[in-house]
Amino acid sequence: MKLRDGGGLFRELARNRTLYLMFVPIALYFLLFAYLPMTGIVMAFKEFNFRDGIWLSPWNGVKNFKFFFISGKALQVTANTFFYNFLFLALYTLFSVAVAIFVAEMKGRYFKKAAQSFMFLPYFISWVVVSAMVYNFFNYDTGTFNHLIAALGAKPLNLYSTPADWYFLLPFLYVWKWVGFGSVLYLAAIMGIDPEIYEAATIDGASVFQRIRSITLPSLRMTMTVLVLLGVGRIMRGEFDMFWQLIGNNGPLIDSTDIIDTLVFRSIMGSQDFAMASAAGLYQSLLCLAIILLANALVRRVDEDYALF
């Protein structure tokens, strides 16, 4: 087998030429719009100047990486990035699946259609506006929330100097913003299940909960694996806009809420050094690569169909 396939690149291409041709447009797109600019990665090792441009500026070794590591915060922000994304991914998956199952299985057509439509609204509210609303609701001196609890005689909440509160608020806002999206993906998967299987189970006397446990959940496993793997592949990339708009430069919160992207942005805000940003990006890429290769290999070991590639 091996031998016959060995010289078989052309034979393989010939045998499946329609299929390979069908892949040409996307391959071309990614070559031009992704791989060509990707060569600019060399900038991470260069001292950029406009005269020579990105590809011909002089090399400067690993100097562009130094700021990130001498900051003394590399480990902390890497851990924060991982921790927040992990939490986001877990909660997002949990809520999306729950919403999808309820929407698919429960009665009340108009109710669930309305609820599902509402869930899409947060997508349209940019983080700038979310941050203005959160500030208005929670700020210490004039916030609505503090007026409310002051009326109840409780101690005012000092959100913007209490890191612990953000461990709750950030995941909450993340799920709030994205649950509409996630639930649609799982819902689409549920819609692919053959209704006859459900009918048969119902006739056999299975309860709703039993049907969900033994039919719906198992058939979501593949979609879930793929979506989680896709999430894992981005686990070192922070939701920059969210963190920057909500917290930005708020000193007391920085240690517990700073992610790689915000630290880098804050550090080179003034200098706008292309090359330093590129270096930090490369660091994130390498971590993501290692993590996704590992996760994908593990999944492939269990079932090849579930793996991303």
Partner: peptide, 17 residues
Amino acid sequence: IYFTTLFSGGLAPYYIV
């Protein structure tokens, strides 16, 4: 195609391309 989500040259090379 997946590889392109992991590595990118950043904004400047993209803009120039």
